[in-house]
Design a protein around this nucleic acid. Structure first.
Length: 892
RNA sequence: GGGGGAUUAGCUCAGUUGGUUAGAGCGUCUGCUUGACAUGCAGAAGGUCACUGGUUCGAGUCCAGUAUCUCCCACCA
């Protein structure tokens, strides 16, 4: 017998290892079925599970489990990303506790240390992912620094290098002084900053008493100025052509240059030009052949050229402002809001600085990736992201891929003492040009951006550059599910890599979902302390609850706001299912030889002679929900699917049908009993299978507990329900009329219950129910259903009357007709009359609206016939209802 | 500066190609320890679908504008 209470902790701890050990997550190219493959967005190896993962992986697992149950040959590849800067930061932090820095260890020892860290702690997130229930194929788990993936990285680099798509150059890059490395443009986060504009006078050389005033937000870069610039069409400064100005504090003379880049309206119309510390200034410098003076060190302190050597850049800013003031150069200070860039890893303010780095030429790579989305070969959902994608791709800039850190794929470029430089996937023994040996060859010290390995993920994980059976069978992958926040970092680059190296798009569909926010709609972050921990939710509510609740509240179009109480939805639903299962089990035990295993597939047989309309209604709704789930998932409408099964299982199955079935399950008629139970077993089995992608644990547990499968079976590989065949639906008499009738009947039951509640009748009190059915046909049907109605509304008798009841009593007008409950003694005629008046007024309002439409010639001539007929029918119905109510009122 | 999104019940959100009386969960109120389930059951209250205009026989749904809130991109020092 099933336990009274469901214990998700024990159940989840049991099934996950069982699935893994039984190879339930594993298919082979030869396993049969058409391929359905997905790669997980690899979390950082330093990461811990957060709500973003929970949402992202729930969506994927729903899709993956659904496809697997549909018989597809399914592969979901898990793995982690070596996360260069993040991981190096973690290990450096640990080292600092020992009072050491990475340079104290040296490169090799440090890298060993990182690997050691990875062995010890790098498994955290993949262990946590298992708690979610992800059906990822752990036999194929990958890490971006694995041998195979590293080989892919080296090959890709060399190919691009040899094609001339990788180049090295001196450009302005984003420099994080804390991490000591260059960052790509999209690794910089811009945030509004309450800063200042300092207005500084630069004396014009050779014109005593004449100045130009520049406005700057970064006075500390002043020692690096090599010009001031004005707009060529600015009459205020036209006379300065050919002039020089004196750079304050330094005594250096720098030219005035004329460049369109300068906005006349901004500040004073004069800009200081610091080509080594600003991208725009760099460009201006290029155009005018200006000197580039870098005034800072790698760690954000000032260097010897600045004249403030060793001073921190922000301290230097103050010092320079102070010195400018003293020297009489400072004109004024204005508060000024601008955007300043921060390192996405450590949030340090980044410096723009001149630096020699490796870049990938992106324009040629972008072309096929743009074309594929434009042609529909690859679709992006929601569709609106397409324009964002195009916009970025069409204005793509070269990708700075070198990082001045140690943890990562070392750049495979070698230089010989002879001056020859080349790229090689393996460490060369000799120089291909002069033949010199290893001792003359040096490798580039930098490593590659982490994304330079993750952009290969969809095929490197399948074995590329080796030609493997996996690669052949599972590439291209089917769906890529990720947050829109890494559309550029990752998705767009994977598209480019897919075309460049595989000649094919890496996936057919890109599914972008929103991010998880807190109850106030704020991003979850460590600093705000508003993060919810998925593991805490799992421990409190279960993984199924986490998954189902997320699925139910997440729309693909928008971000998702969550708080702990949201997970009660999933927990309660799990409990509901559990209790329904207990009910079925209790009843099955009373029937000899009843086996749920007979209902694990689509083999239900029924004797139509024993079927009731409520049975047919349930079967119809079950059929609908099967179709709805498949349709929803085909369109990636995860939420819609969750809602459909939730509503069906709870409302149709439990609230209505189980209650209805109780009478028959306790009745004498053994054949009927058996049929009702088989129907319940069939539909409940469908519910479990439909729900399994969302709630894998509880569905598997019940599947076994009820005995839908043997000990070695699993719901994971049970067929996903498609609904009943047309033949059977016809044989069982499933029709829209049945649907309408049962709904009418239910409205009647609800109506009676409402009447009872309004009249304040004790629940235990059995009533006399009067029904004047809307049509004779309906009356016949209701008479046949009398027993079940009596139970549902606790009526002792039901009297079907041809005429309106004359006695004053609470009544209600429904689709089914007029109902009333005669009460001994008191009836508040005044309240009853008011209720009737209110109802009549409401109906007249509707009638007026319909009359207006029907007398509108435009409506009658232009609206479709069905709509018009509908309105006519409705009018007749309304008129009859109003007449009935008025008769009631008169009788009071 | 450019682009996107949101605005529907007290709260969080559904609402497919325009078509009867706009739905759900939570919360609120009322009554129920009824033989699966109080993590529950039955019932109720609660909405001028942000605003203005337009298209249409008909608009929560399509179009334009306004307001508020958001996100992304961007080199005005």
């Amino acid at each position: 017998m099933m336990d009274k209470h469901y214990d998700p902790k024990a159940v989840e701890a049991k099934w996950y290892p069982w699935w893994e050990q039984h190879g339930c997550f594993h298919d082979e190219p030869a396993s049969g079925g058409s391929p359905y493959s997905v790669v997980i967005p690899p979390p950082n190896v330093t990461g811990i599970l957060h709500m973003g993962h929970a949402l992202n992986e729930t969506i994927q697992d729903v899709l993956v489990r659904w496809h697997r149950m549909r018989g597809d040959n399914t592969l979901w590849i898990p793995g982690t990303d070596h996360a260069g800067i993040a991981t190096q930061n973690v290990v450096e932090k640990a080292l600092r506790k020992e009072g050491k820095r990475r340079h104290d260890l040296g490169r090799e020892a440090f890298i060993d240390r990182v690997w050691e860290w990875r062995r010890q702690y790098g498994g955290t997130i993949v262990r946590q992912q298992r708690c979610l229930g992800n059906s990822t194929d752990w036999q194929r788990e990958r890490f971006t620094m694995d041998e195979g993936l590293s080989e892919a990285v080296a090959k890709v680099f060399c190919d691009l290098y040899d094609k001339g798509l990788i180049y090295r150059g001196n450009y302005i890059v984003n420099w994080c002084p804390r991490c000591g490395t260059a960052l790509a443009d999209d690794e910089v986060e811009h945030e509004p900053n309450e800063g200042h504009l300092w207005y500084v006078r630069y004396p014009v050389v050779g014109r005593e008493g004449e100045y130009v005033t520049v406005a700057t937000t970064r006075p500390e870069t002043l020692p690096g100025d090599t010009a001031v610039a004005v707009n060529p069409n600015d009459p205020r400064y036209a006379h300065l052509r050919g002039c020089k100005v004196l750079l304050p504090l330094t005594g250096r003379e720098i030219p005035v240059v004329f460049d369109d880049y300068v906005e006349k309206e901004f500040g004073t119309g004069v800009v200081k030009i610091t080509p080594a510390h600003d991208a725009n200034d760099f460009a201006v410098g290029q155009r005018h052949g200006l000197e580039q003076v870098n005034v800072m060190n790698d760690d954000g302190t000032m260097n010897a050229l600045s004249g403030y050597e060793g001073m921190d850049r922000f301290a230097c800013r103050e010092a320079i402002v102070e010195d400018l003031k003293k020297g009489g150069y400072l004109v004024k200070i204005e508060p000024y809001q601008n955007q300043i860039g921060h390192c996405y890893r450590c949030h340090t303010v980044v410096d723009s600085r001149l630096s020699k780095q490796w870049f990938v030429r992106m324009k040629p790579l972008a072309k096929p990736a743009i074309e594929a989305v434009r042609s529909g070969e690859v679709t992006i959902l929601p569709k609106r992201w397409e324009s964002v994608y195009f916009n970025w791709m069409e204005n793509i800039r070269d990708w700075c891929i070198s990082r001045q850190i140690w943890w990562g794929h070392r750049i495979p470029v070698y230089t010989c003492a002879c001056g020859h430089e080349w790229a090689s996937p393996t460490a060369p023994e000799t120089c291909p040009k002069c033949g010199a040996g290893k001792e003359s060859i040096t490798q580039d010290p930098d490593v590659l951006d982490t994304w330079f390995s993750s952009w290969l993920w969809p095929f490197s994980t399948l074995g590329w550059p080796k030609k493997t059976a996996d690669l052949d069978f599972y590439y291209p992958t089917a769906d890529l599910v990720t947050g829109a926040d890494i559309l550029f970092f990752w998705v767009a680059r994977m598209m480019m890599a897919g075309f460049e190296f595989m000649g094919k798009a890496p996936f057919r569909n890109i599914i972008l979902h929103g991010i998880v926010r807190d109850a106030q709609g704020r991003k979850m972050s460590k600093s705000l302390g508003n993060s919810l921990d998925p593991l805490e939710i799992i421990s409190q509510y279960s993984a199924d609850a986490l998954r189902f609740s997320l699925a139910l509240i997440t729309s693909m179009e928008t971000d998702t706001k969550v708080d702990m109480s949201k997970f009660e939805i999933g927990r309660n639903f799990g409990t509901k299912l559990w209790n329904a299962a207990r009910f079925l089990q209790m009843n099955a035990e009373k029937l000899d030889g009843f086996r749920f295993a007979d209902y694990a597939g689509d083999g239900l047989t029924l004797d139509p002679a024993l079927l009731h309309d409520d049975d047919r209604h349930l079967l119809l709704k079950a059929d609908h929900v099967c179709a709805a789930m498949n349709a929803a998932l085909e369109r990636y409408r995860i939420q819609e699917g969750a809602l459909a099964i939730y509503d069906f299982a709870w409302t149709d199955f439990c609230d209505w049908y189980l209650e209805y079935a109780k009478a028959d399950l306790n009745a004498e008629d053994a054949a009927r009993r058996r049929q009702v139970l088989s129907l319940l077993a069939d539909v409940y089995g469908k519910i479990l299978r439909l729900l399994h992608p969302y709630m894998p644990f509880v569905t598997e547990e019940i599947w076994h507990q009820l005995g839908y499968c043997g000990e070695e079976g699993t719901i994971m590989r049970a067929p996903f329900p498609k609904g009943y065949s047309a033949d059977r639906k016809a044989a069982w008499g499933l029709s829209e009329e049945v649907l309408t009738y049962v709904e009418t009947k239910r409205e009647l039951i609800t109506g009676v219950r409402a009447l009872r509640a309004e009249a304040g009748l004790q629940p235990a009190l059995a009533i006399r129910l009067l029904v004047r059915a809307a049509t004779p046909e309906l009356e016949t049907k209701l008479r046949a259903d009398e027993a079940s109605i009596k139970v549902a509304v606790r009526a002792e008798t039901i009297e079907f009357l041809a005429n309106d009841p004359e006695t004053p009593m609470p009544t209600k007008l429904l689709r089914a007709g007029l109902i009333g409950i005669p009460l001994e003694g008191l009836i508040d005629t005044k309240a009853e009359a008011e209720k009737l008046d209110k109802e009549i007024t409401k109906l007249r309002g509707f009638l007026k609206g319909i009359d207006a439409k029907l007398s509108n010639e435009a409506f009658v001539s232009k609206a479709p016939a069905a709509i018009i007929q509908n309105q006519r029918d409705r009018k007749v119905e309304l008129e009859a209802q109003i007449a009935t109510l008025e008769a009631r009122k008169a009788a009071l």
